[in-house]
């Protein structure tokens, strides 16, 4: 990582802390340098940054977000931040025109030793529902690399900090909660695994009935 990219990364983390005073809550796993796939709810452009901020420095260096190439290759600045600062695994979201298989791209990144941060809803949730239905990619990735544990991560409040279409973030306190790890069972169907992953993530939300609060 270049010095400039490092400085920009540090500046982004400091800014995220200034605005959100974000706190990581490690409920189901410890912050150890184990290879993982973190999957989180997606309501704001800053979601990845918040997870990145609460990861200890060692983990942060190996954690790569999975993001849409269409968004992150749009301008020079985005390209620099996406590739050099975040070291994102860029995938082509357009089924019609894409040449590579996104699952293969992600699996290759895992084989390279990285942990992944991905948002299985596929797009930002702008509805009143807490979670959009997951895309099948999470299941296919779990099948492709069954040894890697999948950790649900609930991001709370960031959608209030910067709702869609607003330019100025409001400082509000955010939390990032890490749940217990999941692995796909040998006989488990796609629908069952996706349902299990969705409910594991949802159970970390403070608004869910009977959850941690």
């Amino acid at each position: 990582m270049s010095l400039l990219a490092r400085l920009v990364g540090t500046a982004i983390v400091l800014f995220a802390r200034f605005i959100t005073a974000v706190r990581g809550i490690w409920l189901g796993v410890e912050p150890t340098a184990k290879q993982r796939i973190y999957f989180a709810n997606h309501a704001s452009h800053g979601d990845f940054i918040l997870i990145w901020t609460v990861l200890p420095f060692r983990l942060r260096r190996t954690a790569r977000p999975v993001a849409g190439a269409d968004y992150w290759l749009k301008s020079t600045l985005k390209r620099f931040i996406g590739r050099n600062v975040f070291n994102a695994v860029l995938i082509d979201r357009d089924r019609e025109t894409r040449t590579g298989d996104p699952i293969e791209t992600m699996a290759e990144a895992l084989d390279g030793g990285a942990s992944l941060i991905l948002f299985p809803e596929g797009t930002r949730n702008e509805t009143a529902e807490p979670l959009l239905p997951f895309k099948a990619g999470l299941y296919h990735l779990a099948k492709a690399r069954p040894a890697v544990e999948m950790v649900p991560v609930w991001i709370e409040n960031l959608n209030r900090v910067m709702p869609k279409g607003e330019l100025v973030p409001i400082p509000l306190i955010c939390t990032v909660t890490f749940g217990g790890p999941l692995r796909v069972a040998v006989e488990e169907s796609k629908a069952d695994f996706i349902a299990r992953a969705e409910s594991a993530l949802l159970s970390l939300s403070p608004d869910t009935e009977g959850s941690r609060k």
Partner: peptide
Amino acid sequence: FAALREFATLTNT
């Protein structure tokens, strides 16, 4: 600033 950030978090805004 820090106090306002805590207070605003709890409002129904």
